[in-house]
Design a protein around this nucleic acid. Structure first.
Lengths: 201, 201
DNA sequence: AGGCTTCCGTGACAAATGTTACAGGAACCC
DNA sequence: GGGTTCCTGTAACATTTGTCACGGAAGCCT
């Protein structure tokens, strides 16, 4: 599919000025990415900045071996700050971005990201707003990991999950939860049992 | 003290262009801040972006009550990304910045931060470089908290501390360490004993 | 049916961390 | 000297989390 200015206008109603939308239509690349695909993996170079239109992307941080801590989710009209710094700094990615639900996105080539920054003030605002959101996400993650016990973190995790997928039922294996909270399956099993009991009282 | 372009030239040799330095000399405010002072506290508004010339500033994240997790340190020629987003977004601070060693800094008023972004490419680079560094710092912190046990974290903490203060002897109470690692004093006592023993073997 | 895989439940135990309680040393002030 | 405060050491115990070992349920393939 090719991007049309009209489509962009519907999507970004109010946030971007017309001239910018026209530029985006021309320079941006529309992509539809299926569940399970990776947008980026550690070690790869980042050459464009994605803006998520619809769907859900999970950003994770791997450790030396195997484990991957959950950092945050990207949803509608979010963008990734990691990609921004990565892009502008020409660095390899330090994170993994996994598509959780089929995602539509617009990929903006990095030269444009830079160029528009001075040309369009709404773009500059968007970029910094993105930074701010991601920073707060990370701070939130640190809060969780540093100050809260696993049961609370598990609850928070489940809540966020239901929010981000807009549904009331979650289908996921204990194993996956365990990975994202950097613990083991048995522990999650145990805690879920506990919560279940506690809920009955 | 007033800022002179010559002083700035010495300090930022190579990183900033001359015209920018002249602007900085005019708009920037030189400050010398004593150990123990706060640059910012949660809830306060940020009206300028500090660039640290010399010294050491500790950035912490408080939880609902009392505890404060260590996020990272700012040292020579560092700047704070939180202040950037805070500034440009007009938000209240979510963090605490405590001066650990007497610090000299230049405070740049936020209008200038914004204005120079498009005028001076070296400034833009500096800003994004700052973002990138802080982001990586945060990721490192998450790594530590999520994947490592307390004894490793303690070691890493001590190492960083000796680095940042450029000395071989640290003088700090167990209590403080405990706070920054979000644990209790007794635990730190215990672990330090352990490490001590282990070192003797 | 039988065999395979994946996921879940669970008990028993080990290790790590948090908590409580108390004692002693050093510094300081009166 | 006596009193105070701050810091450290340490023992005992509670709680939380990690690990191991195993068994059972469901699905899928032949």
């Amino acid at each position: 599919m090719t991007l049309t200015t009209t489509y962009l206008q519907e999507t970004f109603a109010g946030t971007f000025e017309l001239a910018l939308l026209t530029d985006m239509a021309q320079a941006g690349l529309y992509k539809r990415v299926p569940t399970g695909a990776y947008l980026i993996r550690p070690g790869e170079y980042i050459r464009s900045v994605p803006i998520i239109i619809r769907g859900s992307v999970k950003i994770m941080r791997p450790d030396e071996l195997g484990r991957e801590a959950l950092l945050y989710y990207l949803g509608g009209l979010d963008s990734c700050a990691m990609s921004l710094t990565g892009c502008l700094g020409q660095k390899k990615s330090e994170i993994t971005a996994l598509v959780e639900e089929e995602t539509e996105l617009i990929a903006i080539p990095m030269e444009k990201v830079d160029e528009w920054m001075c040309r369009y003030s709404t773009w500059k605002q968007f970029i910094f707003h993105t930074y701010q959101k991601r920073f707060n996400d990370l701070l939130g993650t640190i809060d969780q990991v540093a100050f809260h016990k696993l049961d609370e973190r598990l609850l928070a995790y489940l809540r966020k999950k239901t929010q981000s997928c807009q549904c009331t039922v979650i289908s996921i294996t204990h194993q996956e939860i365990a990975q994202e909270l950097a613990t083991s399956r048995e522990v999650i099993s145990r805690l879920l049992k506990q919560l279940e009991k506690a809920a009955h009282i």
